[in-house]
């Protein structure tokens, strides 16, 4: 088994704030998806969600707010998944709830030192 980093990307939600019920439903979908993977003993680390706000530090101490000027989608969170191969990892990612809101999952194998 190898470890793969799943990076969840989606466009920042600039629409009206979600209602508590919508947030609950979205939370359940994520937990179902993680639960499915964990039930197969393939979740190495559930990871975290990320706040949308951030800063980027560039050469010459240039600091800008947020990474959004360069990529349209921002990273919403990440998890660590165990899988036999990149193909299997990709198969697992097919059920990710981020896909339903037009986002994507980037999968990268960890290059362990």
């Amino acid at each position: 088994m190898k470890d793969f980093l799943f990076i969840y990307r989606a466009e920042p939600n600039n629409g009206p704030a979600a209602s508590p019920e919508e947030m609950q439903a979205s939370m359940s979908k994520w937990m179902d998806w993680l639960g499915n993977i964990a039930a197969q003993n393939k979740l190495a680390d559930r990871g975290n969600r990320l706040h949308p706000a951030g800063k980027v530090v560039k050469p010459n101490n240039m600091i800008t707010d947020g990474p959004y000027t360069e990529i349209k989608e921002s990273i919403g969170g990440y998890s660590l998944i165990k899988a036999a191969s990149l193909d299997e990892a990709a198969e697992i990612a097919k059920g990710c709830p981020v896909l339903a809101v037009g986002g994507n999952v980037e999968i990268r194998e960890l290059n362990l030192m």
Binding site: S28, M31, G35, A39
Partner: peptide, 25 residues
């Protein structure tokens, strides 16, 4: 059962065990 499912999701995400995986299913 939805409540139980969500509890099992959280349990499995914390720590895997075959019995929890079966009960969750």
């Amino acid at each position: 059962w939805e409540n139980i499912l969500q509890l099992y999701n959280r349990l499995l995400v914390t720590e895997y065990s075959p019995i929890a995986a079966l009960n969750r299913t």
